[in-house]
Computed example of a mutant assay.
Amino acid sequence: MYLHHVAAYLPEAVVTNAHFTRLNGLADEWIVERTGIQERRKAAPSENANTMAVAATRAVLAAAPAFAPGSVDLIVVGTYTPHDTIFTAAHAVQRDLGVNEIPTVSISSACSSLLNAVEIVEGYFAMGKATRAVVVVSEHNTAYNNEEDTMAGHLWGDGAAALLISKDRIGPDDLHIAQVITGGAAPVGKADEAVTLKPVEKGIVMPFGRDVFQQACLYMARVTQTLLDQHHLAAADLTYLIPHQANLRISKNVVKQLGLDPAQAVSNIERLGNTGCAGAAIGLAEIWDTLKAGNKIIITVFGGGYSYGAMLLEK
């Protein structure tokens, strides 16, 4: 299958580290040293996971006239920060497109939902139930985040991205989705309590950040190396590695384990914070116009719970 185009949507409001210094005394240098984050985006009061998903979908379709909205026969949206658990972000995208009676799926697999969504599309395509899909990842972290939480309150940002995926090639600039690998690691470490979001309690909390760090470094490097090995690729053959944008230190650790040149790694966490399952897709949108024939890209992700995955894209 093929990735025809990708586009992102980011809220306008920017929240710098100075906000958290005023709020709870966390120094800018302390936040940057531990996370790499300098600023993040925050959705407006009128925005939510549904509206951002719709905005990202409109943006990607506007940039890809060969992918007519009426040809969409599958919608899959990932988010762990829903605006509505019944009229989901997937339904909001479908309603905005005006395409009726097609499979419309919402999923949540924490920050790895992007690749789980792509894998769902792969299954629908294989069964002959769809040929053109819209995949959207949208996170409204600030709707759930407790900014006064000095452990994790400064990590989160809002944003969304949308991908157009087809069973067959549409245009010469399409990326071939060579392989997707996903997995769950819920029996490992403190997966059941390291990162949680219980809306009726405290919102997003991360009491065991060290465990998340260790498992993310382990699994993101391992699944990426698996993809490289299965396709007989060396680290130097990659044009870009796009890691989940959770922590700059995690990304640097994964890059070091794989023996990559740091210049091969795509990073937006400095500007956007942790945008959950949207982060890597936003990163892909940011480099889209730089891609050339022969380029190879791996997206690698890790989410609370725990879940992980990697996807190889070839130009």
Rank of each mutant, 00 (worst) to 15 (best):
Q179P: 09
G209D: 05
G184T: 02
D174K: 01
D192Q: 14
V212Y: 13
A185D: 14
A186F: 01
A194N: 08
F208N: 13
I170S: 09
V180L: 03
G171H: 03
L218E: 15
A186P: 00
V212S: 06
H176T: 05
A186Y: 01
V223T: 14
R222H: 13
G189N: 12
I165N: 04
I181R: 15
P199T: 07
L197G: 02
G183A: 11
T182Q: 04
H231R: 15
A194R: 03
E193W: 14
V205P: 10
V188K: 08
Q215S: 11
G159H: 00
Q179A: 08
K202V: 03
C217T: 09
T224F: 12
Q215F: 14
R222I: 01
Q214I: 05
T196H: 09
E193T: 15
L164Q: 06
R169V: 04
G157H: 03
T196L: 11
V188F: 10
A221P: 09
T239N: 09
A162K: 04
I170Y: 12
E193P: 08
H231Y: 12
T226K: 14
P172V: 01
F208I: 03
M220A: 04
P199C: 01
L238A: 05
T196V: 09
I165T: 01
D168V: 02
T224G: 10
G184P: 07
L175P: 00
K190A: 13
G189V: 07
I181M: 14
L238I: 03
L227T: 15
L227H: 14
L233I: 00
L233H: 06
R169N: 03
R222V: 02
G159D: 02
P172Y: 08
Q215P: 12
R169E: 07
D211L: 05
A178G: 06
F213T: 04
T226H: 12
M220G: 06
T226C: 15
M220L: 01
T239L: 08
I165H: 07
L175M: 11
V223D: 15
D237F: 00
D237K: 02
G189Q: 13
R169D: 00
A161Q: 07
A162F: 02
L164V: 04
T224Y: 09
D229G: 02
E201F: 07
L241C: 04
P207T: 02
G203K: 02
A178Q: 10
T226G: 06
D229N: 15
A235T: 02
L228E: 14
K167L: 15
A194M: 14
A194V: 11
R169G: 00
Y219E: 13
V200Y: 11
